[in-house]
Design a protein around this nucleic acid. Structure first.
Lengths: 197, 197
DNA sequence: CCATAATCGGAAGGTGGATTCCGGTTAGAA
DNA sequence: TTCTAACCGGAATCCACCTTCCGATTATGG
């Protein structure tokens, strides 16, 4: 057995151009299909959207779960960007609000993402860790708390958790989604009526 | 109103004793299995729990969805009871809180119920309508609002919706579930910081 | 106790959807 | 241009479940 292939880091040879192109098409098709149909979007359908055979999908992503992981990673990168932007904003309270609202919107527009949040703790955690989400959120929240805009007893982990909560509301078409974002933000605002334990 | 199981026309003759007994066993086994495994609990497993053959399950419930509907109806009856009790309690604000907390707990202990809430709007609506949930909630909420315990701009439909939201948090084992119930209740309390539109 | 219709059990059937396989195609180095 | 390792497509395979079927059992009215 030749010692080689430390894997992960060094590809022996660059991917062929068509392969690279197809991988992108697959990823983007998967994003579209799953945003629309949720996690149960079918592999065949994704292949069709990407104008590619199923075989090709499977060459780039050994199985459906890996594909979902890749998509989740992608979406969490976007969320991390939002958090970073929030840190650059002047008003900490406003920054926090905007961050939560924007995250909620992203989620609302992507059924797969909201499904990952409510029913795939593993995938979610992996994606979140991958972009250092907790650290970012800790900062965004910390600033807001220091400024007195958010109750002091809120914890960083509460934010992703409340994101999961919002995910639960985005499947009902009946009502204005912003409503629940607003209610939850008010709950975080801090009358301190009920000290959290 | 007692829930009739499936049935459409008038039964010529009363159910045989063993049939009635088995129907109960199936329902109760289904409740146990689905509370544990969620909606993906398998029919075979449910039959096994009920110590009955799959065929028997299907005689009483033509298909899985009907079985889920029956269970949902059952759980919503319990929720309706809670609402009714709340209406008999003296302090309207406390009654509201208790009602929300108790409902949340029921949900937390029943994975299938929380899955129905977050991903089966149809089933949920049917079950809710079946017990007149909206009317009950309207009363419980109305009293609390009249007493000034809950913000005036909250709507009856918000309550089930926030229940769905909580469902989204109960799948993560990480944190104390009561925390998010508390935050949402604070959000409903009413500093009126952000008037809902 | 009998007759018989209602029930029962659980093997067999059917289905939807993920995953594999492999002969044909192509990028790209020499 | 030629050669070949990579890559491609999509039919075929596999698998996990739900659902159906039917011979064996059993409750119950007479």
């Amino acid at each position: 057995m030749t010692t080689k292939i430390s894997q992960a880091a060094a590809p022996e040879r660059a991917m062929r151009a068509d392969a690279r192109r197809n991988q992108k098409r697959v990823l983007s098709a998967a994003r579209r299909c799953m945003a629309r149909d949720g996690l149960e979007a079918q592999m065949e359908e994704i292949a069709r959207c990407a104008k590619v055979g199923v075989g090709t999908v499977y060459r780039h992503f050994p199985n459906k779960e890996d594909l979902v992981d890749a998509l989740a990673a992608d979406r969490f990168e976007r969320l991390a960007e939002l958090a970073t932007e929030a840190l650059e904003q002047e008003d900490p309270g406003e920054a926090f609000d905007d961050f939560v609202r924007a995250s909620a919107r992203i989620q609302r527009e992507d059924r797969a993402l909201s499904e990952v949040l409510t029913s795939r703790p593993g995938t979610m955690r992996r994606a979140a860790d991958g972009v250092g989400m907790l650290r970012l959120v800790t900062n965004v929240l910390g600033r807001a708390q220091a400024a007195g805009a958010i109750r002091a007893d809120a914890l960083p982990e509460d934010i992703p958790m409340l994101m999961c909560a919002l995910a639960g509301t985005f499947r009902n078409p009946f009502t204005d989604p912003e409503r629940y974002v607003a209610i939850i933000l008010d709950g975080l605002r801090a009358p301190g009526s009920t000290p959290l334990r």
